[in-house]
């Protein structure tokens, strides 16, 4: 019986117990919104799921020393509704309120979203533009790295077998203006554009290519939307041809700039 292939369930009570169990065949499991689908399709066949939901301390959102820390068990809905995220990272809260559908948001975690490295991830594009970082635990200790470096390709991250993403850190930057716009007709966007502006401009174009792509320019007036649309790597698929997607990039970049200029 069953639509899911056979596996065994491990329920660690601490991060150290979890990383002692994790390996190439034993995968971290929280919301399951990506993992269980991949297992159902036969794309992943772990021997064990290491269920993180019994680990205390990974389910909180906290603010300290100029950053917001989001635990690995925090779902999109919990983060979007959290008063700290609403007050300190309102742009990110807006992104999280529109990820996937309400069921995906209620069960899927931000950490799982990043670890799956789906090319059309809203969260990855937004967190790269906001200079977010991930904290990674392993039996050897802990390390931190930029989300930009963590996402190395489609469905591929810097996470080694046996490592666990435990927390996401997002700097609080009241001086930065942020906007995210996307074109979406199904569960995943055809295009997402994140724009962060202060002393310089960071543009992240997500969903149209194999990974979110970042472009830096000195100022908003120096941002040539046609040039970004021409340079961005685009993969044609069911959501559109290369020509159509480049057109989308240009149109949505203009819309993002318009929203920033109108102070929306």
């Amino acid at each position: 019986m069953g639509v899911l292939p056979a596996f065994r369930l491990l329920r660690p009570r601490s991060v150290s117990e979890a990383v002692g169990w994790l390996n190439y065949d034993r995968l971290a499991y929280a919301g399951g919104t990506e993992l269980l689908l991949a297992m159902r399709e036969g794309l992943l066949r772990p021997t064990h799921l290491v269920d993180l939901k019994g680990i205390e301390g990974l389910g909180s959102v906290e603010e300290s020393s100029g950053e917001v820390t989001i635990g690995a068990l925090v779902t999109h809905t919990q983060a979007a509704d959290h008063p700290i995220v609403g007050a300190r990272l309102p742009g990110l809260a807006g992104v999280l309120q529109r990820v996937g559908n309400p069921r995906v948001r209620a069960t899927g975690t931000l950490a799982g979203n990043l670890c799956f490295a789906e090319p059309r991830s809203d969260v990855a594009a937004a967190l790269i533009a906001q200079e977010g970082e991930v904290e990674i635990a392993s039996p050897q200790g802990r390390r931190r790295m930029a989300v930009r470096d963590f996402v190395v390709g489609p469905y591929s991250t810097a996470l080694e077998p046996g490592e666990l993403l435990t927390r996401i850190h997002v700097p609080i930057r009241p001086d930065v203006r942020f906007v995210y716009v996307k074109h979406q007709t199904a569960e995943r966007p055809a295009l997402g554009v994140a724009l962060s502006v202060n002393s310089h401009v960071s543009v992240v174009v997500g969903a149209v290519g194999l990974s979110p792509q970042a472009f830096e320019v000195g100022s908003l007036s120096a941002l040539d939307v046609a040039e970004v649309a021409a340079r961005v790597e685009v993969v044609p698929d069911l959501t559109g041809s290369e020509e159509y997607k480049r057109h989308l990039v240009e149109v949505y970049l203009r819309r993002a700039i318009g929203r920033l200029e109108r102070g929306e």
């Binding site: 639509v3 399951g32 269980l36 309400p102 069921r103 995906v104 209620a106 069960t107």
Partner: peptide, 13 residues
């Protein structure tokens, strides 16, 4: 009280 897709949610959870 939260909506979930029961097709891909473990009964164990």
């Amino acid at each position: 009280g939260q909506p979930v897709s029961s097709c891909t949610y473990l009964a164990a959870d």
